[in-house]
Nucleic acid binder design. Sequence first.
RNA 1: GCCCAUGUGGCGGAAUUGGUAGACGCGCCAGACUCAAAAUCUGGUUCUCGCAAGGGAGUGAAGGUUCGAUUCCUUUCGUGGGCACCA
Length: 1179
Amino acid sequence: MEYKFQDIEKKWQDWWTANEIYKVSNDSAKPKYYVLDMFPYPSGKGLHVGHPLGYIASDIYARYKRLKGFNVLHPMGYDAFGLPAEQYAIEHGIHPAVSTKQNIENFRKQLDRIGFSFDWSRQVSTSEPSYYKWTQWIFLQLFKSFYNRQTKKAESIDSLIASFEKEGNSNHPIPNSQFLIPDSDASTFTADQWKMFTEKHQQDILMEYRLAYCGYGEVNWCEALGTVLANDEVINGVSERGGHPVVKKKLRQWYLRITEYADRLLGGLETVDFSEAMKEMQTNWIGKSYGAEIDFRIAGSDEKLRVFTTRPDTIFGVDFMVIAPEHELGSTITTAKHKDEVEQYLAWVKSRSERERMAEKTISGVFTGGYAVNPFDFREIPIYISEYVLAGYGTGAIMAVPSGDERDFKFAKHFNIDITNILGDKFNGEEANPTKDAELVNSNFLTGMLMRDAIKVVMNDIENLGYGKAKVNYKMRDAAFSRQRYWGEPFPIVWRNGIAYPLDETELPLELPNVENYKPGPEGEGPLANVKEWALIPIPSPSMEKGASVQQRLGDDAAGAKNFGAVPKYSVYTPMQYELAKNMRKNHTEAEDLLWQQLRNNNLGIKFRRQHPIDAYITDFIALQEKLIVEVDGGYHENEEQKLYDENRTNVLKEIGFAMIRFTNEEVIGNINSVLNKIKRELQKNKSQQKEVGSSQTPLSIHGEGLGVRETNTMPGYAGSSWYFLRYMDPHNNDEFCNKKASDYWNQVDVYVGGTEHAVGHLLYSRMWTKALFDLGYISFDEPYKKLLNQGMIQGSSRFVYRVVPHFYINDKLHQSRPLKKPLFVSYKFYKEIQEESDKHYTENYGYSPDKINVEAYTKILIQIESEEKEIFDGHAPDFSIQKLHVDVKLVDGVDLNMEAFRNSKPEYKNAVFICEDGRINAPLSIHGEGQGVRYICGTEVEKMSKSKFNTVDPSDLVDKYGADTFRMYEMFLGPVEQSKPWDTKGIEGVHRFLRKFWRLFYDEIKGKIWNEEKATGAELKVLHKAIKKIEEDTERFSYNTAVSAFMVCANELADLKCSKKEILEPLVIMLSSYAPHIAEELYHELHKASSTGGGLGEASVLDAAYPILNSAYLVESSKQYPISVNGKLRTTLNISLEASQQEVEEIVLGNDVVKKWLDGKTPKKVIFVKNKMVNVVV
RNA sequence: GCCCAUGUGGCGGAAUUGGUAGACGCGCCAGACUCAAAAUCUGGUUCUCGCAAGGGAGUGAAGGUUCGAUUCCUUUCGUGGGCACCA
């Protein structure tokens, strides 16, 4: 009976599916274990051997834990939103949902063949509405939360509002923001002020607190992709995907306030088992630094220049100050004399792209003419502007200490600024010394102090004297959370009059509409902005009625306003409200009628509307296009309360972009012409202002006034992946993102397997989401992943052929270089030979000189060329070059090119001629040179695995040829999971041989079944238990390559012992099942089916077997073959009892002939004896 | 430039705590089976001197600590990855 892996694998895969063997219950008495893979983006390219590596590693672990008695969650799904699907849609006109579905099916088919133990009933896909419903829901939770710095956790925004109403924002100052708030001088306010703010103003302020917020800031804009990118998606000034240039641009964007979590993200790293490299990367990305903010008075002014420094101890070494070009103080401190120069410099800086700035690090800057005053010694310090100071970090200004900082030093040298040496002889005047261990000199009261200690001293003084304060800074920025793209989660947000209203949770999911094309919308909006019927709210939205802020204002405002709703066409209030309002305003005054006549006559050439609703108000007259409102006071606007209400309403309308002009009844009736003139003037003024305003902060202006408009950006790729590990726990729940009981049971992911490429992206974001969900009480752990295992990349091993390209001459001139009619290839040896020779002789010229190079290959090639095309050199010295070409690895066996297959691979290679490794020629259809041992050897190189390099290997091919079990084991056998290593298909034979050998322990090709139920001997049990020990330990620590090797050793030893006993084989089968599940399942069933003792187990899966238990009694040895060294050099080995004492060992060893020989008659000084290890005789 | 990994036969790699360097597999060599080939099996395989017994060298390089170093320390070189004016 032979090992028919195809039949076996098919049979058991079907059986597993039919019996739902991998289905996991949330309800189990067993302890839980959660093994998670980073879910894949279902690309259209299909799998290569690198992709399943991590999945196999996790699968082995999941199966191992199941055998160990755990209830194991091991799910799989798809990260299905993203750019490539959309790009593909643009190019091929196929809807992303369709291509994504196809890709998923294709992926699944490939994965299924490898025999994973995924519970597919829990599959999730981020682009499914049933999934992104909850992504949107979590977004809303973030939107409705703020980070309470006092309790250090996320809390409901309602509690913040409550606190504002009670005490203003004194206890919750606005967190650091990258954005300019309208009316930004109102960064602190009292409870009374808060209550007086308009809704718009209040909401703008709340936006500065929300964990998910919309702001107007500098973003990485990629023109080619038509979207904004997060910082980690930009590498060296170009996009990570596609390498397109990226520029800084101010745009309206959504952000996650991840910076509030910086400290907890940092601290959490200590509680998780990530690799040091991974922790390091995240730590660097967060970039926490301790220092001080110090205020420097500006000479001759009341202004202060605030700088951030980590080295306050160097305060007496400050020789100049530098501010960023964008720094707001730049214009005030620049003196008249330097104005032109400064402006020129700023213009130059602006003209440079981010990329140029990064590429060339030239020293540039300009003196402002202004001086700052050192608070400690009152020295006046010149202030410069330079690019090297970044506006976004610290305060955008630095105190420069050229003796201690390299950049400051270079700057000082460049601008000839005198350098104060505060380091004494630790500073050589030629380069800065950033040490903290020098003794300070020239430093006033700090002189003689060690810098390290001085930091604390100065810090104290700074705080006590009020010069500044201790400050912690982070490199990390808030994460840009919106993309101007189609294929992503829509934001559950509706904009109206500049306010973002969250959708009600009952309205989720907000589904993506179908679109015709994927072009970006206007003003940097996403493609969804083109879908008017989706983006404009056609029907009243319950969320608008329910919006807390709306309710609140309606309640607080004057009673009359309550019922002033708006028609659905322009707003989202109910029709009922509108009717009510209209009725109340039925009785128009004389003045109103008079003005309406004039305006309707179209005297001004523009269209006015009467009694038109805007926001929650009804206006008297309005020019919609021109955004001008004209109000005539009726007879009932006299009491104070009404006036206040009017003012408030004027402000609100102003904020949403309308100018307001007010007349009294008397004015209108008394002098209607002057009133019309005033309106005319106002219209003109308004026009010119509107031009300046430019692009709006909200999508509102694009679509017209007063409309409710959906947010038309979509969420980035990392939105769905930030929480998917929770959805697996409760994937079909339609009422919650994940039931708390389920998340309490499954808890943290015990092992998370994936690549390092997500170190600062996905991993940080999902850690933040987890912390936020924890804070808000939805889950009970605040780190998602307990242990992270990073699999290495499998690199491709490329093969090359070397084509000879002769240079043709016609009429004394080099005509062209082209391959011969019968393309000529030389074997690697000759290529190398020629390469070396030519390198030796001609490092400057290309080409080869016949009179200098006299190598075998050269002659051979020439003979070959000349035999084909004699006129080729036209009397010139023969000349040619050699092209290195990628050849498909499928045409190569190891390094041996399959010449026949190569000829058939492309029409132009049909007549290819090879100069083979031994110098013989292999030409098509010629007997000459063909036959045994003619080999064409390819060159090899390790590169990234990619289709364009023809070095991809399709797992399906290997599964066809060797089976899934072999494939799985070989991927693991290749080397440590964490390490990157090149793929080499050749070695797979060895693993396949092992499985066949293992099979032969059970079945003989002729005799059939040979396994038996005889009692095992001590030697056999020793082999078994040695294997159990090694394999269990290795599996536990993910050292799969050595575990596979232990299986091999064990099989080899059992074969030597001719052992085919069930007592030995069954435990091995169970252990093997996590590595090679199919063969193990087959053998397990066979062992039980035909067994006299285990007949009842015939239909039990090996998956439900128990892991064998190590009995170390079988491993006990009575003696050991000790290595015996003399002076540390191994000379012999001796079998000595483990019982032997030091004295006995010494006697035996010193009595040994070999040892005696090496002692050469001398007496040993010492005999070192380590029990069970070694003996070393020291002379 | 800074930070972090990493360097072992022809190749992938092993040596878990400082204790016989090269497990296991590929490749290669020899042999068995075969008319022959493939497949399979058996043996050998770090380099070097030697017929052998046996010696010498050897974990990127140079030093050090130690009875003993692939393992720890210092310096240095190569490769891979991360960050890059972060004050």
